[in-house]
Design a protein around this nucleic acid. Structure first.
Lengths: 340, 340
DNA sequence: CCGTCCCATCAAATCGTTTTGCCGCAAGAT
DNA sequence: ATCTTGCGGCAAAACGATTTGATGGGACGG
């Protein structure tokens, strides 16, 4: 122990009153030297500081929170912290707000609406200064009962109907368009897509379609198949694609896991990638650089999303911004690697 | 909005006093119907409950925390939530304590000791009910200054010198021994190991050595090489192993990433796995089932570790247990897949 | 010498709960 | 009739900070 516990009372922490008594001043004065909200004489400040050090005083944050109505804590409610996307998002948020002294309280909802509601309530009851909400599906369908009109909310990936709610959304559509254009520019002709389940990831499909149109590539319905976001789903979707008479020479997958499944099929069929068939994914998960060849994909900017969510939150918490809901969209850049 | 906000005052939340006034009773009584700490008449309880519902009362948790000196919040301080091991650990913890109404406050230290200390202080100042601490390296070397002797601490992976500190440690040694024994029982003769950097992961090396001794396999020094936990490090270590005169026919790697690097080498050399060379990893990360063939490995029970950490914590917080530091070791089972 | 102003400090109220001690009152025991 | 006992309820004191209004005393200008 480098720093021994000076004046360690057995338990019961030292309060501001004890410091005041020791320094021969009032609690008010101690509070002021701590907060700097009012000037205190240099001599007095010195005495107080010394008393604080001698007693090893640490302010009781709970008491402070009660009085100031700020907790310096923000809640991040996500489907599952185990999912790398949300883990990275959370990290980006934490890094952004840490410097300002805010902690992050994470809640796993598993995408269940009742849990989402429960954690919203819980967070507000706990008096968090802000909430970052990332839903698996479109958030607008979520109902939060009566939400506190005070605490700012940031919604990731979609809008939420709330006066103080800002949104940060990764630009899936533009990213997908970039992927499609890239494949076309490389000269691939019969470009296919493995989409997500119906009603999901529509922006990715839209971006792809728009790119195909711009590049004058026809995409018959049989080349638009669906997977369930999993590796296995991608595997099966790819199988049906490869069984087509006019076999596609390039496949854009709505996420990396499905792209990896597609890659499995290519290997299994002895097709070389990207010569015989090109593959592009979406998300840029860690596994993208584990498969061989490394997966060409579109990056989903999780860290940046968390960071800007933190920034938006802080601009509201500090009162710097008080207007209506803002929306910031983040680019999803194409990462060229080995599969296209 | 399914539940409209009845009697929604513009802002300023409704307090227990307002409920009491409306129900024609004292705040004490309201508190008692809520907590059930003292009996209240059925009629009064009814009136109070109705007032609560009508006003949409929600208790102010911060005020409650101040009074009761409990926050129902526990801090989990880890190197990086982005690392799947810690993400899963955190999830296990959250799931364990969620039912009891505890939230989890995550802190990323990046393994820096000053940040570890800072977050420890911060957590205690915030009045968390417990701390789960997972350090990258051996925790005993960490110095926390003067820690609160009140709040229980659980240490993952190592002991910590603190009266109220329990430890939960995955049994790396037994797991590694199982891996070694398994390879021997499969008839492999020249078994090698890619260890972690010196002074790290000694338990894994120890377990492996013990298994080799029991199986009467000599392991010359040249067959014990080191990597730096990364895929690239594993790649290079495997290269030197494969260049040996008496080429190993099996390799145990101290973690999965290095095992994947070793697998790269085997593929590059045109060796078939596990016929020409067997490979076993440690951790069972997601990527273990992405490589081909799927990696045989030892599972590092992150989720269970988080869960038992939560259980130990709760047994102390509730006062059920008050004794000296406990240690629970968790088995690391061998997962047979395709590489051995 | 007096009025004014500012600086440093303090006493007291406040934040919204929980908890302790006390007090009627009615029912049952003696 | 008196003495316990227990129940239902209330007033007030914590919990540990912040914040507001007031105050005493020097410095300074007139």
């Amino acid at each position: 122990m480098s720093r021994s516990d000076v004046a360690s009372s057995p338990h019961s922490r030292v309060t501001i009153a004890q410091v005041a008594r020791r320094a021969g001043v009032s609690p008010t004065t101690v509070s002021h030297v701590l907060s700097g909200k009012r000037a205190v004489g240099a001599a007095t400040r010195g005495t107080v500081m010394e008393a604080i050090r001698e007693l090893g005083y640490r302010p009781n944050i709970v008491a402070r929170n009660l009085r100031t109505r700020r907790s310096h804590m923000i809640a991040v409610v996500v489907p599952d912290i185990t999912n790398p996307f949300y883990a990275v998002l959370t990290r980006g948020l934490a890094d952004a707000v840490d410097a300002a002294g805010h902690g992050t309280y994470v809640c796993n909802t598993d995408g269940q609406h009742d849990r989402e509601r429960k954690f919203f309530q819980d967070a507000m009851d706990r008096g968090v200064d802000g909430i970052v909400f990332a839903s698996g599906e479109t958030a607008s369908q979520v109902n939060f009962g009566e939400v506190d009109q005070q605490t700012p909310i940031i919604c990731i990936g979609d809008q939420l109907d709330h006066p103080l709610c800002d949104a940060v959304i990764p630009d899936d559509e533009t990213g997908s368009r970039a992927a499609g254009s890239f494949l076309a520019s490389r000269g691939y002709e019969r470009i296919a897509m493995i989409q997500g389940p119906s009603h999901y990831g529509v922006a990715r499909t839209a971006g792809f379609r728009s790119a195909m149109q711009a590049a004058k590539r026809k995409v018959p319905a049989e080349r638009m198949v669906r997977g369930d976001w999993t590796r296995k789903g991608g595997y099966e979707a790819m199988k049906t694609l490869m069984a087509l008479d006019a076999r596609p020479d390039a496949v854009f997958c709505a996420n990396d896991l499905m792209a990896i499944g597609a890659l499995d099929v290519a290997h299994e069929l002895g097709l070389s990638v990207p010569q015989d068939v090109a593959i592009v994914g979406f998300d840029d998960v860690d596994a993208a650089t584990i498969v061989t060849p490394h997966l060409t994909t579109v990056r989903n900017p999780a860290y940046e999303a968390g960071g800007t969510a933190g920034d938006l939150l802080m601009s509201r918490m500090s009162g710097r911004y008080t207007g209506a809901g803002r929306t910031v969209v983040l680019p999803c850049p194409l990462i060229e690697r080995g599969t296209a």
